[in-house]
Amino acid sequence: MFSRFFKKDAPKTRRVVVKAGAQYVDPTFSLTVADVDEVLKRANLTRSDLQKLLYDDEIYGACERRISGVLGNPWRLEGDNTPWLYDAVSNIFEAALRIIMQAKWLGASVGELIWAADADGIMRVQSIAPRKIERFVQRDAGLMFKEQGGTEILTLPEKVLYNGVNVHKDNPYGDALLSRVYWAWFNKNYGEQFWSRYAERHASPLTVIKSAVNTANADDARQELAALAAAAAN
């Protein structure tokens, strides 16, 4: 579905084998470019995996405050500021901004511009859908999209909203802010889990009472339990 909006580029691009742990794993394809982020390599993560850090209350709150701060600033269109253009931009402004800010969290982001005809039959952008950055790479010819078969095709500028932070040839997926806080999040998240398990096991262990009486008689068993309870209370 997505590939029909792209134009074919020259012959297939040679695949580069990635030995590091940051290779994107998908049932149908893998990356042709290695991710140079050292944190992701050591943690064996992809760029999309970093989004789970947004479930942390502090990280999510910090990111949302940044987005809210940008959304709260007034904006205007320079030049042609006709009502229809202002309305068209207003309809997708927040979605576009969130995809743009996602590049700050992940290093790069891609959104697919969904075009559709309005009531007057004019083609306009109706929505923006986020796409996985692992399926795209910046080349000299432009932004390339990798098909499931392994070929790379050149994207059309009017079809994608691409953003990157410090993206260049040696760093094709940019600098991810969330990778800088990954180990702090890891220690906080898993450290609390390990401590909770330790406290449950050792700080407040379950009480185990052993009895020397081995009987199938219910009355004898109740008497023995009562005696053990009285002994434990004392």
Results as ranks from 00 to 15, higher is better:
Met144Lys: 01
Gly79Tyr: 07
Val39Phe: 02
Leu178Pro: 05
Ile122Trp: 00
Phe145Thr: 00
Arg201Ser: 11
Arg139Gln: 04
Ser204Gly: 05
Phe145Val: 00
Tyr55Val: 09
Asp35His: 05
Ala10Ile: 04
Gln138Ala: 11
Arg98Asp: 12
Ala230Gln: 05
Arg65Asn: 05
Val160Asp: 00
Leu113Asn: 04
Ser109Lys: 10
Leu206His: 13
Ser3Val: 11
Ser68Pro: 04
Tyr190Asn: 13
Gly79Met: 12
Val33Asn: 01
Thr151Gly: 07
Ala116His: 03
Trp84Pro: 08
Asp56Gln: 08
Leu77Lys: 03
Thr82Asn: 15
Lys7Ile: 15
Gly72Met: 01
Gly111Leu: 09
Leu143Ile: 09
Leu85Gly: 08
Glu147Asn: 11
Gly191Leu: 15
Lys188Leu: 02
Ala34Met: 15
Thr13Pro: 00
Asn214Leu: 15
Arg47His: 03
Arg15Asp: 12
Trp115Ile: 15
Leu177Lys: 11
Glu158His: 04
Asp26Phe: 08
Trp105Phe: 07
Thr215Gly: 06
Ala212Pro: 01
Gly107Asp: 12
Ala117Glu: 12
Pro130Leu: 05
Asp87Ile: 14
Ser68Val: 11
Leu113Asp: 06
Gly72Ile: 00
Leu154Ser: 02
Asn91Tyr: 01
Tyr86Arg: 12
Ser109Asp: 10
Tyr173Asp: 01
Ile99Ala: 05
His168Met: 06
Asp35Tyr: 08
Ser211Phe: 02
Val36Gly: 09
Asn189Ile: 12
Val125Gly: 00
Pro27Arg: 08
Glu38Cys: 06
Lys19Ile: 06
Tyr162Trp: 07
Trp84Ala: 14
